[in-house]
Design a protein around this nucleic acid. Structure first.
Lengths: 337, 337
DNA sequence: CTCGGAAATGGGAGCGCTCCCAAATGGAAG
DNA sequence: CTTCCATTTGGGAGCGCTCCCATTTCCGAG
């Protein structure tokens, strides 16, 4: 509150004026481009300090046609999908990588119609230099908008259907296979799968991995059932499963939430885990550690997923042409199997 | 891939040309401002559709001096602070409110030095129309930068020290008092507090609430101890507490994480909860429901916190002068007390 | 002392939009 | 058929920065 003169923020012209150079030279000095004498460069630096000059990012964006921002859009019909700790991890990873590339992070939760409209507009208007797209479902209304985007798009997790040009994914099928093989290696012979949403590629791939492992062992896989990746869904599916097949001795759950749901139903129906039924989950979220018993699960490198998406996008913005990436998973052994 | 002509995105001039009007009229029509005849307005709309025109947000931002974005900055020396599900809830709330105000959300995790530098620059450069600031600690390096920000700043949770002009907070002291009073009403007479970080106002206010309640009951409050809001910290603090005061019969934990830590130590030292020691937490995060036993805790409206911060900021950007807001908490009864 | 080329410099034209303001248009009133 | 005012219209000047390019400056070589 010392001096509250309604002073505008200084412009590059004023810096140049004070430094006694032209705007061009000042600009070059600022972006430390070549063709600036040592003397003038220093004069500019001094003027910048004296005036407290900070370049106007908007003006720069207009001139360079680069906004300096990358958007992370999380699709879903319900904003609460974002409450999944999964996304927080993705963001931590992406944020770190974007920081390195000097890009800002815009977060778009495309839940409502209005939200989707805004994302579409962002995509078409060039309001960001690139987009990271997560949790796209089959027939997602954003799918079309993405195709005519005015900027590069990196997918987090392949969408259902033909693989996009750029994506980062986790080895869902491989992880599921490994989990199922482990269950089988324990001597379990009636291993069922609790499917996730089958309108996502992750849901499908995890079932495929399960099925492949069971077939490879010469056994009959359980048919896929529509799931929803929620704890309640896992509990219900397990109840239904037990009704039809009381002799199940192993369960591969498409994610930890469903795994925990299974644990609950199993407990409620008087079965011991892992003695009577062994359970393996997928994700390795915090919940897998605090469940009772702690859940053996397929760990996926979520921060790395975010990081690699951001790096890929930064490369794209930089004019390079990176190749898709599939991150490895690994089985984490705990008490449930 | 139908026609891959390197066509630029159309500009307003081209729209105007096609519609047979001047750029001014086209601009007015687009922003549906007055002084445009019905006929021309329609002509412009037609041209927009035909050309697939989308206004360039950067150019608009430069001309209006409004970026159309609000930043949410989460301070902290460690990016993993963001993994706390708390922030995801704040974001869900803020995102919804920003959507209504037609502002985009920029997320800044100011963890590294570089990250902080970027936030400072954002603040000073006017790269956003306003900022929501969370988790500011005492002596936070961002504190100073905030004061000379070129835009309105809304605090999420009061910082330590003099209250800022605009903030949204939760009634920390009130919630803590209520929790403690409840413990006292249960007939407990040796109720201790597990403090959170005392370099945050939330940590201090919660201790004050506890102390006030104990004093009001004519008892002696336990002295404050430095805590860290983590499960491990809660467990350790509880162990230390029990060593000094084996007869404690009630614990008010400054948040759920610490409450769960207390539960663990209590269990490990052979005490029954709530029979021997009653425990109350603060936050009402998911962990409070799945803990063993489920944690009685002070619920705080986190999404609302985010929503109100965003609304306050939108009002500020809109030139209004909103007043600070303190959101109520409420005690949620579960098995631990 | 002259010349040539490399380095440094600054003028100016954008980037695409908003908004002020003067000029043109269109009726209604006289 | 004027006169006048309320609208509508379009020209033009920015917003603050980058970048191309024509000039100027500087030096060492000849």
């Amino acid at each position: 509150m010392a001096e509250d003169a309604p002073r505008r923020r200084p412009t590059l012209d004023e810096v140049a004026g004070l430094a006694g150079v032209s705007r061009s030279v000042a600009s070059r000095a600022l972006n430390n481009a070549p063709h600036v004498s040592r003397a003038k460069r220093e004069a500019v630096e001094r003027a910048v300090r004296q005036l407290g000059y900070v370049p106007n990012p908007t003006a720069r964006a207009l001139a360079t046609r680069q906004t300096g921002a990358a958007a992370l859009v999380v699709s879903g019909e319900d904003p609460s999908i974002f409450a999944d700790p999964f996304f927080a991890q993705v963001i931590v990873g992406a944020s770190a990588a974007l920081e390195e590339a000097d890009l800002h992070l815009m977060l778009c939760l495309a839940a409502s119609d209005r939200g989707r409209k805004r994302v579409e507009e962002l995509l078409r208007s060039g309001g960001a230099d690139g987009v990271m797209l997560m949790a796209l479902r089959e027939d997602d209304p954003l799918g079309r908008a993405v195709e005519e985007a005015a900027m590069p798009v990196v997918f987090g997790g392949r969408p259902v259907g033909p693989a996009p040009r750029w994506y980062v994914d986790v080895d869902n099928a491989g992880g599921a296979r490994e989990a199922t093989e482990y269950l089988l290696s324990l001597g379990r012979t009636r291993v069922a799968a609790l499917c996730g949403r089958l309108d996502t590629e992750a849901g499908r791939a995890r079932y495929r991995g399960y099925r492949d492992a069971v077939l490879a062992a010469g056994l009959d896989p359980f048919p896929p059932g529509e799931g929803d990746f929620t704890e309640g869904g896992g509990a219900a599916a397990t109840a239904a499963l037990l009704a039809d097949h009381p002799d199940v001795d192993g369960v591969f759950a498409a994610n930890d939430n469903m795994g925990v749901g299974a644990l609950r139903t199993l407990r409620e129906t008087g079965r011991r885990v892992p003695d009577d039924v062994a359970v393996v989950g997928f994700d390795d979220l915090a919940v897998a550690q605090v469940s009772d018993p702690p859940l053996t699960t397929v760990h996926q490198p979520i921060q790395a997923l975010g990081r690699e998406m951001a790096r890929m996008l930064a490369a794209l913005v930089d004019g390079q042409d990176p190749t898709p990436l599939i991150l490895p998973t690994r089985l984490v052994f705990r008490a449930s199997a």
